[in-house]
């Protein structure tokens, strides 16, 4: 090892001055700060804790990646009334894109004229999922989306495998908080839009 490589950390610190050597003035200064925070005096001490079950932190609903939901869409039924159906067309894009292989789809022939297939079963293992959002990105019809629900609990592993009904129910629960994403309707930027507007930031790689 060369001497030039030696770096003694102690010498980087300035020596203590006379008051500092007695520690007590410093102690006093520090105690003033601590007491200020403790009693919330002079602008300090605002409690930052979120009292979780009662209070919840406001999340950015648009891009928070929590539990999945399976969107529903309206269609005109045979009797001419508005009816709801699952938006998914069982294209398997999400299952293919999923890095954790947690999406399992069983497809069948669609009863509707405007599409060929629909999912008979749609299971997501929420314990396997890594909440990366790739399924959301892959979906051509924006049928699968990640909601802002993060308090996901269950008593068994089986319970944590969300089937189609549960995922659809998730949509019913969250549709008011987060409207179904549709670039034409909501105006959310697509991936392509974002890449187009921010070219410089990605190009600048850190040195070494």
């Amino acid at each position: 090892m060369k001497d030039e490589d030696v770096l003694n950390v102690d010498d980087l610190q300035p020596p203590l001055n006379t008051a500092e050597r007695f520690y007590l003035p410093i102690l006093y200064e520090g105690m003033v700060t601590t007491v200020r925070h403790m009693f919330g005096m002079w602008g300090a001490g605002k409690r930052v804790t979120v009292q979780y079950p009662e209070q919840k932190r406001s999340l950015r609903v648009e891009n928070y990646r929590g539990v999945h939901r399976l969107n529903k869409e309206w269609y005109r039924g045979e009797d001419g009334t508005r009816q709801e159906r699952v938006a998914c067309v069982a294209c398997f894009m999400c299952a293919t894109a999923c890095p954790a292989h947690c999406i399992h789809i069983v497809a069948d022939e669609s009863p509707w004229d405007d599409r060929e297939k629909y999912p008979v079963r749609f299971d997501i293992d929420e314990l396997r999922c890594i909440y990366c959002g790739m399924c959301e990105e892959a979906c051509p019809v924006d049928a699968i989306e990640l909601t802002a629900e993060f308090d996901l609990v269950g008593l068994s592993r089986e319970e944590m495998i969300f089937d189609k009904e549960k995922l659809l129910e998730m949509y019913d629960r969250t549709k008011d908080i987060k409207p179904r994403k549709d670039p034409k309707i909501t105006g959310y930027p697509t991936t392509a839009d974002r890449l187009a507007t921010a070219p410089a930031a990605d190009a600048q790689a850190p040195e070494e």
Partner: peptide
Amino acid sequence: GVDPEAPLGQIGK
């Protein structure tokens, strides 16, 4: 031999 003014690499030589 520690000169506070010396460049850092020399310290502790």
